[in-house]
Nucleic acid binder design. Sequence first.
DNA 1: CGTCCGTTTGAGGATCATCAATGTCCGTGG
DNA 2: CCACGGACATTGATGATCCTCAAACGGACG
Lengths: 251, 251
Amino acid sequence: MKRSRTRAPAHREALAGAGAGPSLRARPFFRHMGSGAPAELLSESQQRRLAAIATVVRLPPRKIIYHEHDVARWIFICSEGVLKAFRELRSGKRRIAAFLFPGDMFGIAENGRYVNAIRTIIAVTLHRIEADQLSAALRHDPDLQAQVLIKVTHELRESQRRAIIIGRRDAAGRFAMFLAMLEAHPSFTSGSGIIRIAMSRSDIADYLGLSLEALSRATGRLTRGGIIAFEDRHTVRVLDPKALTRLAEEV
Amino acid sequence: MKRSRTRAPAHREALAGAGAGPSLRARPFFRHMGSGAPAELLSESQQRRLAAIATVVRLPPRKIIYHEHDVARWIFICSEGVLKAFRELRSGKRRIAAFLFPGDMFGIAENGRYVNAIRTIIAVTLHRIEADQLSAALRHDPDLQAQVLIKVTHELRESQRRAIIIGRRDAAGRFAMFLAMLEAHPSFTSGSGIIRIAMSRSDIADYLGLSLEALSRATGRLTRGGIIAFEDRHTVRVLDPKALTRLAEEV
DNA sequence: CGTCCGTTTGAGGATCATCAATGTCCGTGG
DNA sequence: CCACGGACATTGATGATCCTCAAACGGACG
């Protein structure tokens, strides 16, 4: 399964598609912080500065980038694709701490080591930056550091939100919240009611703290209830948005 | 009620009672970030700088500091006491997003508004800082901003850890993890096996995503099992630390 | 002494986890 | 072109756990 080598033409084409440089997405909290652009936090010059110390990395699906407790040499910014941050529990179960989308940053360590393992779900394009270099860049560019602070704060709230999701007891409601989360993500600006779900059922189950079977039954209920319909395994159409948000919000 | 409190005597007294100044606790992630002291992130000068723009506030137990969606004028740093950050759900239930201990910061907004409500659990001493002033201070002191970044990152990990806790199905295990969390907190450096639990059972239940009754039964099981013993309602003695950690870790 | 709040205990019903089997999709190789 | 294999996904049956409703208990405080 490791024979998928990146042939030269594909590689070049892919790089062109990756855009100018790294970007971060979040919502600002201080009015005077940053440029005020909510979607793209980094200015042109900041992107250039980061790009100067970053290496563009392209990876196929299902590839481990690093393990829990590895020494943290790099910080990554996702430009394209989807990844998962997860932990293996002693029981052999997996818990997914977060899904990572374009504009997300990962690899921030604790005491010099990574706290989650990271694995690609679909093919990704990343910007890889030496931790020391990023650290220096942040020291010399307070505005850039402010953007990173905003980003991390944003993720903190996401995480708190998710903790509240998982606190629910009903599987259908959790899955509804998962869909709402996906739909609210900037990567899904289509808003057409069609949601592309890159991750597998097991990943979703691990993310929601459910068994695979419970999740399957939940999606089955929603489908039979006429609230959603799966076009294929990774594409879902929202038939009854009001019912879905009602489910997602009736905590 | 804004600046009238900055009269010299009261101010001095309050500062003296609260210790030198505001402090933040977290674990650093970049080696080159900050002074390298894990427990106290802020240098003397940084504490002074913050203290200069902060107002010391003392509050009794069970006092709401602000509500969800309030306009976010201030940032707070807890110097003493315990608070809870929570949300009211439509169903009337409460979910506690986090407990706040000395060294914790709260009040960081999203789009200019608070995302959680905050209420004191026991009497607290806080440093209250105008958001605009803190924002300016961070811009002018990259090192201070770095400390804040470290702090927020630390909280992000705490939140992810908690999400994993809540993913568990068994009440006793969740309570064990809660105790472990308390014990690991810097405020409990005693390490004597006696844990002071400031919050009520309902608060713990809301934090763990359990019903009050389920939590009560879980503590009952642990007590009957000889793993813990309650000296009084808010003080627990750990009789069998190994069993407790085993419970907390066998996810 | 009585009230109030927080906590504990009890019984019944709902939901999910687990184990097991079946079904589906897709790539591989004959 | 088609048959096979493996990963992914659904369905069924059973047991464990928790939630809800309800009632009793306990200390704090007037």
